[in-house]
Design a protein around this nucleic acid. Structure first.
Lengths: 212, 212
DNA sequence: GTCTATAGAGGGATAGAC
DNA sequence: GTCTATCCCTCTATAGAC
């Protein structure tokens, strides 16, 4: 039955969020889902495969909710604002925590690694598409790798989510500071050709010194 | 005996690195350390307390190695370069992975949370001290919270470390892109008063739009 | 300080009744 | 598809010999 399958997926998300990857087991998931423990293996074969499915389906569902908003974003400032409100909502729902826990478990498990990469790729694609669109014409676009930046932003959100668990106030300040840094990209745009020249000169120096 | 204690600490670091927080148990740690399993409880009381000790001592030891280099750094560019080489070395030694795994476990465990916060605080303090020194006189310093930025940098390194486990190539590109972004701070410095004015104008706009 | 042995809980997974 | 019952494993932690 598809209803049981769905209960197990939701139970897995709740368990990963509340008990972490170390506390996620077939028995605990089944209890959270309100179904019999043996059904985990009947429907998914193993706990790992259930986590895999929950991770993929959970991310796909949430990304779909935000796709429209990503498409509407008209400036880097708006993208940062969307990132912040998205992070707050998803954090409250526990979806960032799930990603972080699966990512932690993925370091030692190939199946979880594939699931985590797939789920993150959905978010990264949205960020990257928006970045490419918004950085068009900005001097920064000529020197920065949009795909790398999108991955860096996604990974940083995960890191800050984990840090929030041990220092909520510090995590808020971290988000605010990185947001301020993002505004620098717009400042460079405001300054046009002047900034473009300075940026190129700086980057030449940086690349030279890091190549040796 | 202090030798057994030390073996257990090293065994814990190796286990967290190789098997993750979900695969770290008294038995596995003892096997890695080459000592009897019961000694975990004799010396540390519980597995959690051993992880706590390993996390704190491991971080203190590694931060001490880098303190001198942090103090020598003379520009933001050099700080970024140090961050990159530090991340490569520590990643290879597994120390970033240990922090990431403890941080993942810390979301559900108050003792681990305290240990993770303490260990991270050591790194954050070094970064923050260097940032305050290097940003002196930079227009960015007037608008950015150095403490928040230091926390954001540390958390981002953790996030990218976890991402590296599922997409090594993407993680490299992420680091490179964030490094390029850091260079923007120097560009703003190069541009002096012009950039200062543009930055202030931008930030006023950003703060207005995010307050509502 | 170090060992063996073990209690008692919880884990993954399966067999077989319904 | 769902259930109970169960196997066998690993886990934390302790008792007690050495």
């Amino acid at each position: 039955m598809t209803e049981t399958r769905d209960k197990l997926i939701q139970g897995t998300i709740a368990t990963l969020r509340d008990k972490g990857i170390a506390g996620t087991s077939a028995r605990v998931i089944a209890a959270a889902a309100g179904v019999n423990q043996a059904l985990v293996f009947y429907h998914f074969g193993s706990v790992d495969e259930l986590i895999d499915a929950a991770c993929r389906e959970g991310a796909a569902e949430r990304v779909a909710v935000y796709r429209e908003q990503f498409e509407k974003v008209a400036s880097l400032r708006e993208l940062l604002a969307l990132g912040r409100s998205l992070n707050e909502t998803e954090r409250a729902a526990g979806n960032v925590a799930v990603l972080a826990q699966v990512l932690a478990g993925a370091q030692q498990d190939h199946n979880l690694a594939a699931a985590a990469q797939h789920a993150l790729a959905l978010w990264i694609e949205e960020i990257e598409t928006a970045l490419v669109r918004l950085l068009a014409g900005n001097p920064v676009a000529e020197v920065v790798d949009a795909a790398g930046l999108a991955r860096g932003i996604a990974a940083s959100f995960i890191g800050i989510e984990l840090y929030e668990g041990v220092d909520p106030d510090g995590a808020d300040r971290a988000l605010a500071a990185l947001e301020t840094l993002g505004v620098l990209v717009e400042v460079v745009e405001d300054l046009g050709p002047v900034a473009r020249r300075a940026l190129r000169a700086r980057l030449r120096r940086t690349q030279r010194s890091s190549k040796q």
